[in-house]
Amino acid sequence: MLEIKGLSKKYDKVMAVNDASLTAPSGEISILLGPNGAGKSTLMKCIIGVLNYEGSIAVCGYANKSREARSRLSYVPESPALYDLLSPWEHLEFIARAYSLQDWQDRAEELLSRFELSEHRDKAGKELSKGMKQKLSICCALLTGPRVILFDEPMMGLDPAAIRELKTVFKELRINGATVFISTHIIDSIEDIWDTAHIMHRGRIERTIKRDNGNTASLEDLFFQVTGTEGRGNA
């Protein structure tokens, strides 16, 4: 479970995240929606602990910067930045060492196979295409068997087969009781999988919507309603 209470983050005079609170329960796919500049990536960076903030973030009940929390948390960044000289297999080996994983090799093989990276396993990171980098970034995040996994715009750069595979992964993680937290502004990409949607606008969580609480409007309509950007989109 991921719990955020009263989170605020200020850059100089700009309030990037303003008193945000949300809960992403275990066994659910929660999505964070918002237009460009809403504060989604800042919120994600606060959760993984690379930004300082006011408020509290708990991962499975542990403070997010604690070792306990970090060993349960995985993150797939918006821009996959890999080590230029390390091969996909070596990236996975590094992650296994960093998270002190045992008997990880079979799982790593399986992940590479699922995301069609097996034949590229010995290529240098810099030789991979953008889509392959994104796939490897996802494999690294999944290898640790996280209880909470964050995805920042995960579909960017992926081919249709990989998108379908990733959606399957989301559903498997949900079944296994993990917390899946996806930040995106492309509503179509997650329309069929979300359980809870948090709509963020100008640094605030403006609205939290449950799929099963009788909402008749589409997620897209709700999004435009909250962010007030529909008119411009249709112009």
């Binding site: 993984i48 602990g49 690379v50 070792r67 970090r70 060993s71 948390l73 995985s74 993150y75 960044p77 821009s79 996959p80 930045a81 890999l82 080590y83 230029d84 990236h91 590094f94 992650i95 960093a98 998270y99 002190s100 990171g125 970034s137 690294c140």
Partner: peptide, 15 residues
């Protein structure tokens, strides 16, 4: 550091 360190090392349980 490089961004790969931010994404892989900073978010890991390493001290």
């Amino acid at each position: 550091f490089r961004m790969a360190d931010v994404n892989f090392v900073f978010s890991s349980p390493i001290d």
